[in-house]
Design a protein around this nucleic acid. Sequence first.
DNA 1: AACTTTTTGTGAATTTTGTAACAGTCGCGG
DNA 2: CCGCGACTGTTACAAAATTCACAAAAAGTT
Lengths: 217, 217
Amino acid sequence: MAKDKVQKLPSIKRLPAYLRELKSLREEGRQVVSTTLLAQRLRLESIVVRKDLEITGVTGSPGVGYKVEDLIGGIEEFLGWNNTSDIFLVGAGALGTALLGYKGFSEYGLNIVAAFDADPNKVGTEIHGKPVLGMDAFANLAERMKIHMAILCVPCDAAQAVAELMVAAGIRAIWNFTGATLNVPEHVVRQRVNLAGDLAVLSVALAEKLKEEQRGS
Amino acid sequence: MAKDKVQKLPSIKRLPAYLRELKSLREEGRQVVSTTLLAQRLRLESIVVRKDLEITGVTGSPGVGYKVEDLIGGIEEFLGWNNTSDIFLVGAGALGTALLGYKGFSEYGLNIVAAFDADPNKVGTEIHGKPVLGMDAFANLAERMKIHMAILCVPCDAAQAVAELMVAAGIRAIWNFTGATLNVPEHVVRQRVNLAGDLAVLSVALAEKLKEEQRGS
DNA sequence: AACTTTTTGTGAATTTTGTAACAGTCGCGG
DNA sequence: CCGCGACTGTTACAAAATTCACAAAAAGTT
Ligand SMILES: NC(=O)c1ccc[n+]([C@@H]2O[C@H](COP(=O)([O-])OP(=O)(O)OC[C@H]3O[C@@H](n4cnc5c(N)ncnc54)[C@H](O)[C@@H]3O)[C@@H](O)[C@H]2O)c1
Ligand SMILES: NC(=O)c1ccc[n+]([C@@H]2O[C@H](COP(=O)([O-])OP(=O)(O)OC[C@H]3O[C@@H](n4cnc5c(N)ncnc54)[C@H](O)[C@@H]3O)[C@@H](O)[C@H]2O)c1
């Protein structure tokens, strides 16, 4: 029954880039912006921008453009980034440490509350001001604090086990930085950061470019 | 003129996941695999897997499946990951440090040779066994060592300037971990790691799921 | 040997995404 | 207050990706 397909994925993925640019424009004191300008800044076609912005429901005025404020508000509301959501992070290793210190998340309405790790040497310490707790504390705290989202950056082999623990603790959304494919129940959403996939695209594009060049010259 | 569109992007992005699973199957001593099994492991439909594998040119035999060895070889060759490529990293900060220590890159035929940073306190040190050099050394070394690829993880504001320096040094592919949209000439390929975009998808999917649930109950 | 099951490979249908075209609105400069 | 260029919003069209449908191959089963 559950036909939980989110539509217009590509558009949604581009929204944060618009948001970033819009905030930068606001800094510059700009109040109005056209899709032409946005497109130019983001190296896209203006029609793409127009179509993307359509899904937020924000409207502009012909001959003028959109109000910067409206767009920022509209995108944030569409993404649910206007209210900050608290999130837990599991795996305070190399990558986890970088994420814990990343200032940019506040732009996305994201607040990492605490980190969790299996390593007893790390438990009890603080990283970038965030406490590192033991895995046994996870379920209890998640429930008490009503945390629904979690970042997963443990080694790949541990990923599935940790994910199951998350699900059992009531987590509903897992942001997965590991290479593993998670098996989770229907009611949990998951999003994998596919670095390898991006690199694959880059590799193929470069090879293509070089080949083409050889042909051309 | 150059209509350098790489086709089947979604398929290419999935290939590394197959590769990972295939290597794991090889570990387990498996010699043959069907798209049915692969799909099950990666939570995809078997037809998706079949279509994706098609682009590598590897063929299987009906009723049996594909040889695991063949597929691994085929995918690696298609992606150009069979010969290791050397790459430079610029921005040895929080994220850069994590990347420098990441063992997984060798799976992708990627070898980070050296890091570069503007911070004089970092220059001259080593991170995870990789030397951190000053920015002034970049161009010269890139040419001498014939490096074509670079990882960009400096703060967003510095991204464009550093990218231009890379291009001037002959870099042909930039793996961009910053939020900035890079302006580079036609002959350079770029791939942005869009964390914010992934989070956007997760946010919307979760909101959707919750809304749907409310309706359903 | 005939039949069943599993699975590949391909061409075609369907859905989704990206592009183009254009009517209609707005503000501006005369 | 009229015409012009800039811009939106919508409808129509094209391309790409996904999904379906099925013939044919291999291996096992009766
Ligand atoms: N480092 C990178 O740059 C990078 C890049 C891409 C992907 N990744 C992925 O991110 C993940 C983490 O990478 P990393 O480099 O930070 O590894 P890491 O080894 O530095 O950190 C892993 C952390 O997880 C903890 N851990 C291990 N098992 C656990 C468990 N069962 N429960 C809770 N905590 C546990 C460890 O104590 C450690 O602190 C890996 O899956 C890796 O593939 C890392
Ligand atoms: N930390 C994260 O988890 C994270 C997550 C997503 C994206 N990012 C992005 O990655 C980038 C780096 O993030 P970070 O957290 O590592 O930042 P950071 O401040 O820890 O590191 C930036 C590094 O770049 C160096 N640098 C600054 N200007 C430079 C220049 N002009 N030339 C060469 N080096 C220069 C600095 O000395 C520093 O070492 C940022 O663009 C950030 O948005 C980071």
